[in-house]
Amino acid sequence: MSFNLEIISPQQIVLNQDVDLVIFPGVEGDFGILKNHMPFLTYLRLGLLYIYKDKKLIQSFIINGGIVEISDNKCSLLTEDITDSKDFKIKDKEDRIERLKSKLVSKFYYA
């Protein structure tokens, strides 16, 4: 009872495999997708994404927004900001905040 899940980010195709169940952090609450879902389009909030296969959790991601499209037993997730929860480190995010802050300063400097 599996369907194809494709996770695409601007940098790469993060995942493309057959799965049984995906739980998305939808904008109006979490929702799970199984096989033979009707055509569906929604977007996501910041949260956790769980992927199950053979009744086991095989992977989870931390995701900051994205768009989910489901049609013909194919589920596509487009997201700009996704991290495997195994690789998630608070420090990376703090670094990124610092980087963005310093960019703001240098922008004003140039203008």
Binding site: P10, F40, S71, E80
Partner: peptide
Amino acid sequence: SQSYDFEPDEEVILNEIIPRNIAIQIH
């Protein structure tokens, strides 16, 4: 021409998706 089920609704999704599309065009 698929008829999607939308959540929350079509207009909100359009307003969410179009800025993303613009960003990817710029990128």
